[in-house]
């Protein structure tokens, strides 16, 4: 601790570029939602700016890291930053899991007359409160949504189980990659990384297939609260798998370039943890959506 050199970076353009990009993206998206013709292109432009910013900003950081400018303290700051960012992601998912549990345990039974809601069933004739909720109480929502009713439930032994197996295997392979990295087995490391990314991509492929299948069977975003929680939970999970796979690819590229040593590989650790986290979220999803 006695030899503590502080590091303070110089000014940077990347944040303001990021702000412009992300605002453009959102303004475009909001306009797209209201059928404004330029909404889509503007949203695309914003997305491009964000990607450009990410490459530029992270590229700068990687260059500085490889250039040996950083010290242990900067490394620790990154660790704190990444850890708490991931924790905020956990809380984001918690909101959706909370909605799932609330609907299942409280509000759907209440709609069926549980608790002190004696008269609720009188509002909707023939409505049966059960989970999964295959039929909605009303046919048309407050804002005019026509609910898609009577869907077939996705079979847990079909694609979902296969996908779980795939994602868990990718968890195993990244653990082997981690092991190889720590022991300096470079070729094994690269092989396990490739396997992890391949399994992740395969998972995404099957997930898209499953969406197609579920949609065909009538399970849609408009299928009431079951469809809402199902698609938003799996959708945000799929988005995180996509991001994780992209990050793993970048890490693979950096491994090829020889950026990591068996002692010093925080970027790998951060991404590996992220991948394990996404894996656990899926396990929770699989169990709570398909089983319990």
């Amino acid at each position: 601790m006695s030899n503590q050199d502080y590091y303070v970076p110089h000014g940077t353009y990347w944040p303001i570029i990021g702000s412009i990009g992300i605002s453009t993206l959102f303004v475009g998206f909001a306009n797209l939602l209201h059928d404004v013709s330029w909404g889509g292109p503007v949203m695309g432009l914003g997305g491009t700016i964000v990607v450009f910013m990410l490459f530029g900003w992270l590229g700068t950081v990687v260059n500085e890291s490889v250039g040996g400018i950083y010290n242990k303290q900067v490394d620790r700051s990154f660790r704190w930053g990444m850890s708490w960012f991931i924790f905020s992601e956990v809380m984001f998912f918690a909101a959706f899991f909370g909605a799932l549990f609330y609907a299942r345990v409280l509000s759907v039974p209440w709609l069926g007359g549980a608790g002190n809601n004696l008269f609720t069933p009188e509002l909707w004739e023939g409505f049966k409160a059960a989970w999964p909720l295959v039929s909605t109480p009303g046919a048309i929502g407050q804002n005019g949504t026509e609910f898609s009713v009577g869907f077939e439930l996705v079979d847990a032994w079909g694609l979902p189980a296969l996908n779980t197996a795939l994602l868990l295997s990718s968890g195993v392979t990244i653990t082997y990659a981690h092991h190889a990295l720590r022991n300096g087995h470079r070729n094994a490391l690269i092989a396990w990384m490739v396997a992890t990314i391949a399994l992740g991509v395969l998972f995404l492929g099957f997930q898209i297939t499953e969406y197609g299948h579920a949609y065909h069977e009538g399970l849609r975003l408009t299928s009431g609260v079951y469809g809402s929680t199902f698609y938003l939970l799996t959708g945000f999970h799929g988005f995180h798998v996509t991001v994780g796979a992209i990050m793993l690819t970048v890490i693979l590229y950096r491994i090829q370039k020889g950026h990591f040593s068996s002692e010093n590989h925080f970027a790998f650790e951060g991404v590996a943890w992220y991948w394990h986290f996404v894996d656990v979220v899926w396990l929770g999803l699989f169990i709570f959506v398909y089983w319990l």
Binding site: A99, A103, S107, V108, L111, W124, L133, T136, P137, G138, A139, I140, G141, Q142, N143, T145, E146, F147, R220, L221, T222, G224, V225, Y226, G227, S228, T229, Y231, L232
Partner: peptide, 11 residues
Amino acid sequence: GTAFFDATGGG
């Protein structure tokens, strides 16, 4: 068209 906060859709 989700129904998180709409009782007619089970939310």
